[in-house]
Simulated scan of single mutants.
Amino acid sequence: MKKLTLDEIKQVEYNVLCQIDEICRQEGINYSLAYGTLLGAIRHKGFIPWDDDIDLIMPRDDYERFLQYCQEHETPFYIISHRMDPKWPFLYTRVCNASTVIPDEPLWKWRGKMGLFVDILAVDGLGNTFSQAIRNMYGTVFLLSLANAANWDHFFKTRTRFKGYYDIVRFGFYVLGKLVNINKLLSYTEKRQARYPIASKVYSGETSGAFAYGKKEIMASDMFSEFIEVEFEGKLFKAIKQYDKFLSTVYGDYMTPPPKEQQIGHHYINAYYLKDENFISNT
């Protein structure tokens, strides 16, 4: 199998994004570029040069409609979700290119086919006060941390500067994880997340990926009610209208690139074509 270069990885992922966008426009489904993808669109008009992934967020109703469409129709991609694969240990949905493959992660118990992907994360209502939203968010984060640890094939130490204390906590999750059924835990957690429609609460947010940004994920609910179009790699895609407030909350001064020594991708994906022919010319 031929290993893909960083530029080829980006092109495959971009093609998957185009396919998702086509379905969403056809079906009237709202989505937004998110996190580093949204930052890249605003600051670079495309990928952050040293980054290698695409993230989207969808209000819960739109997220459910997208999944239902994918279950009921033939699509040019396939999706990985805990609803379809009981061993998948995450709540977000991974939309995968069918002509590429990423080798199994040796850390995970999960072993399944995974091509280059776009991640889609649902946004839910969290609370009418910021403190209520924090409680709901960290309740979900606790459960997702447990599901994540239950998927570890073995315990491993972290490299963070807080590793002494953090590793003790992580080992506790690893031990508890041996006692849980991942799929049942995720199904319960997703029901818990989806209790409150965005419009019914003052604060909303995406919690299935909140490990990275914590309470910065908590935003005013109207943040997710209006959408515009922004340029990404020469094409227009959807984004929340209040993208400046979103990016400022998560990243601070997002228009200033980090120092050169910090311009490093965080996924380090190794991906391969399933065959020797070049698949990335097809969207």
Results as ranks from 00 to 15, higher is better:
28 G>K: 01
64 E>A: 04
25 R>Q: 09
36 G>W: 15
55 D>W: 10
65 R>N: 06
25 R>S: 08
44 H>R: 06
37 T>C: 12
25 R>F: 07
61 D>H: 01
45 K>D: 14
27 E>G: 05
38 L>Y: 03
57 I>T: 12
27 E>M: 11
35 Y>V: 12
62 D>M: 06
54 I>E: 15
27 E>V: 08
49 P>D: 09
62 D>C: 04
36 G>E: 15
40 G>P: 14
44 H>T: 11
28 G>V: 00
49 P>K: 12
47 F>C: 11
57 I>N: 03
47 F>I: 08
44 H>K: 03
63 Y>D: 02
39 L>C: 08
39 L>W: 11
56 L>C: 03
65 R>I: 07
43 R>P: 10
37 T>Y: 13
44 H>V: 11
26 Q>F: 07
33 L>I: 02
51 D>K: 09
36 G>L: 14
58 M>P: 00
42 I>D: 03
37 T>F: 13
54 I>W: 15
53 D>L: 06
30 N>Q: 10
53 D>F: 11
63 Y>W: 05
33 L>M: 04
63 Y>S: 05
37 T>R: 13
40 G>Y: 14
32 S>P: 06
66 F>P: 01
32 S>N: 01
62 D>Y: 01
29 I>D: 04
33 L>E: 03
53 D>C: 08
50 W>L: 09
48 I>L: 09
55 D>N: 08
53 D>V: 08
45 K>F: 13
45 K>V: 12
33 L>D: 10
26 Q>M: 11
53 D>P: 09
50 W>P: 03
29 I>T: 01
59 P>F: 01
42 I>T: 09
40 G>V: 13
41 A>Y: 08
45 K>I: 13
39 L>V: 04
67 L>R: 13
62 D>W: 07
64 E>C: 02
64 E>H: 04
29 I>H: 04
54 I>F: 14
29 I>Q: 03
65 R>E: 07
64 E>L: 11
51 D>S: 11
43 R>E: 09
32 S>L: 06
44 H>M: 04
60 R>L: 00
49 P>M: 10
41 A>S: 14
36 G>S: 15
56 L>V: 00
25 R>K: 12
26 Q>I: 01
39 L>Y: 12
48 I>H: 08
65 R>K: 12
65 R>G: 06
64 E>Q: 12
68 Q>K: 15
64 E>P: 01
31 Y>F: 02
46 G>Q: 07
34 A>Y: 09
30 N>K: 09
27 E>Q: 15
52 D>M: 14
52 D>H: 13
63 Y>G: 02
39 L>T: 09
30 N>L: 04
32 S>F: 03
28 G>E: 05
28 G>T: 05
54 I>H: 15
67 L>M: 14
58 M>C: 07
50 W>M: 01
32 S>T: 04
50 W>K: 05
27 E>D: 05
61 D>F: 02
59 P>T: 09
64 E>W: 00
58 M>V: 10
25 R>I: 06
58 M>D: 01
38 L>K: 06
30 N>A: 05
